[in-house]
Design a binder for these strands. Structure first.
Length: 264
DNA sequence: ATGGTTGGTAGCCAA
């Protein structure tokens, strides 16, 4: 089974890139973040025509929005409103594979603004969002098995998840307090990092490159903001990972690369 | 220390 996640940064603007990506990679299930559209304008038909007849999504005007599309049957969709807001940032479904069913969580953690300051509303929202996820998974999901978390978690936790650890210590996405809270979330139900499972921590690994770089590929000042985690029972099923860096170089790209995890 | 880009929307916000 192939699972793909991508912060698409507007599903309507990049529908053609998405269908090309699906054609090339043929995931069984894919998750999108930052769809940036109310549900009534979501381009469902093109994706159903591409073979993904099972789908659930929640969006809003202008920003946020998460979606799950699948060739495999989906059930029990849940939409979570977090931190007392109406943001569309967390959706879950159950995915039925031939052998077993697993619970898939598609999450878009707030970016957190520019100032890594606890008095900043945006930074506070980001930290509170991670705390709420930690609390929720600990209290509501600690006894569950066979779960997968995917999404734009907007935090690069390891030194080699950013281009320069020291220079990034005061940059939102890699500050010690974010990494601390991220790590608590990671430990909440004993997740396994499905990407780092295949790539040693000593190796640089990124999934996002800023639009502002003059030469994103040459400068390569990336961050690993997009993640796929699995519960321990699924660890033996992990087969292969890919971060599709080339997609970042397509015409009118998202600033995030798609991330793939293959399961046996 | 600063500004650099993009998308959605509407005269700027979020990333």
């Amino acid at each position: 089974m192939r699972l793909l996640t991508w912060n698409i940064n507007s599903v309507r603007l990049r529908l053609d890139l998405l269908t090309q990506l699906l054609e090339a990679q043929k995931p069984d299930v894919f998750c999108l973040q930052e769809t940036k559209t109310p549900d009534e304008f979501f381009p469902v038909e093109a994706l159903v025509a591409a073979g993904y007849k099972h789908h659930h999504f929640t969006g809003m005007k202008g920003y946020n929005g998460v979606a799950v599309f699948s060739k495999l049957p989906l059930s029990d969709p849940q939409i979570y409103r977090r931190c007392g807001k109406n943001d569309c940032r967390h959706i879950s479904v159950k995915v039925a594979t031939k052998d077993k069913t697993f619970e898939l969580h598609n999450i878009y953690i707030p970016a957190g603004g520019y100032e890594p300051d606890l008095n900043s509303d945006k930074f506070r929202h980001k930290l509170d969002f991670v705390d709420e996820l930690t609390r929720w998974f600990t209290q509501e999901r600690s006894a569950k098995s066979s779960m997968v978390v995917v999404g734009d978690l907007n935090i690069a936790p390891l030194d080699n998840d950013v281009w320069d650890h020291k220079k990034m210590l005061n940059v939102v996405s890699h500050t010690p307090i974010e990494v601390e809270k991220f790590t608590k979330f990671y430990r909440s139900v004993g997740w396994v990092d499905g990407i780092r499972h295949f790539v040693p921590e000593e190796e640089k690994l990124y999934s996002w490159w800023s639009y502002r770089a003059e030469d994103w590929n040459g400068a390569d000042k990336g961050r690993r903001l997009d993640h796929i985690w699995v519960t321990k029972d699924l660890k033996p099923a992990l087969k292969n990972q890919q971060i599709l860096r080339a997609v970042r170089g397509w015409q009118r790209p998202s600033d995030h690369a798609p991330v793939i995890l293959d399961f046996k």
